[in-house]
């Protein structure tokens, strides 16, 4: 039962390779019929480019899985091999939407609860971070006053804030959101401040000649000019907040991927932990790509020229 599962994955890996190589070998034939040539060539090119990017990581993944399977299949190994992980978590994988009340819910609900907390905390951090970063970047006195404070506070590990926030809010939900906020706000502040400080004097001169008022200067010059820096901060911030949420949720309990992992550990469901880690990784990756994509759209014009 366990081996076929792996085999299925291995063939799934092989399929894109085969489909991408066969049109590429067919390419010379295609060029002989000039009418269809451009379109067909385009597809062949696209398929080849995709294959070049997709195949190597898939090969590595397959090899890693094989290695893991071989290492963990021995009797007495402490961790389950991938085949057993799959077997034991099939229900969780194929039915992420069940809800039996309490914390006995599908993974979708756990992940969405975690994502909501991150969305809240991160949004507040983005607004506050860009605001404070602008202040510190623009005003020498604000920098002198606030920067040392930031440099000290930002080194405090996220979880160290949790007891304090629990004491202040007396509830898990706002405490988790606060921890997300306090974790992700520092890189946003610092990068925004650097971005604002690096706005070329030329742009400031233009704004002065045109006589933009402070609000217009903020929205029309500062934010677009500092956007590449701001988005660097936002990207680091989203990564950190996703790191912090899992740890925070382990401690506050309730619905959420962090507590799901802790709960699985307490009931010795090691396979479920591995599945959860897989999801945490994928979602962290997607969040990062999301901000990177947003940055690309927003900052399309700000490349130096």
């Amino acid at each position: 039962m366990s081996m076929p599962a792996i085999k299925a994955e291995a063939t799934a890996v092989a399929i894109p390779t085969a489909s991408s190589t066969s049109p590429s070998t067919a390419a010379p034939v295609v060029t002989m019929t000039p009418k269809q040539a451009p379109r067909a060539e385009k597809y062949v090119k696209m398929a080849r480019e995709t294959a070049v990017r997709v195949v190597p990581p898939l090969v590595v993944l397959a090899l890693l899985m094989l290695f893991w399977e071989l290492v963990c299949r021995r009797t007495g190994s402490t961790l389950p091999p991938p085949s057993r992980v799959f077997k034991e978590t099939k229900e969780l994988i194929f039915d992420p939407f069940f809800d039996r009340g309490g914390i006995d819910k599908g993974l979708f609900w756990h992940l969405s609860a975690s994502l909501q907390r991150v969305a809240f905390g991160y949004s507040i951090a983005a607004i506050v971070g860009i605001g404070l970063g602008t202040l510190v970047g623009q005003s020498v006195w604000a920098m002198r006053g606030l920067d040392p404070l930031f440099q000290v506070l930002r080194t405090i590990p996220p979880l160290a804030w949790l007891p304090l926030s629990l004491a202040a809010f007396r509830d898990g939900q706002p405490s988790a959101i606060f921890v997300i906020f306090i974790t992700s706000v520092w890189p946003i502040i610092i990068n925004t401040a650097v971005g604002i400080r690096n706005i070329p004097q030329d742009y400031r001169n233009v704004a002065a000649v045109v006589q933009l008022n402070p609000l217009e200067f903020f929205s029309k010059i500062m934010i677009p000019a500092a956007a590449p820096y701001i988005f660097t901060g936002l990207r680091i911030g989203i990564g950190l907040s996703w790191l912090a949420i899992v740890a925070a949720e382990m401690l506050i309990g309730g619905v959420g991927i962090g507590f799901f992992i802790w709960d699985a550990w307490n009931s010795s469901h090691i396979s479920e932990i591995i599945l959860a880690l897989f999801y945490v990784g994928i979602i962290g990756f997607v969040l990062d790509r999301l901000i990177a994509g947003l940055a690309k759209i927003v900052t399309r014009g700000t490349a130096l020229n």
């Binding site: 070329p200 001169n205 233009v206 000649v209 045109v210 010059i221 677009p224 700000t302 490349a303």
Partner: peptide, 30 residues
């Protein structure tokens, strides 16, 4: 500084995130 003494800067100083039209429009709107 003020628009009654508009400057043409040595390194053009156009705002790279605005189009040519928007760069001129920025001053005109003010």
């Amino acid at each position: 500084p003020g628009p009654d003494r508009a400057v043409v800067f040595q390194n053009h100083s156009l705002l790279p995130w605005l189009t040519v039209y928007e760069n001129v429009r920025l001053g005109v709107d003010k």
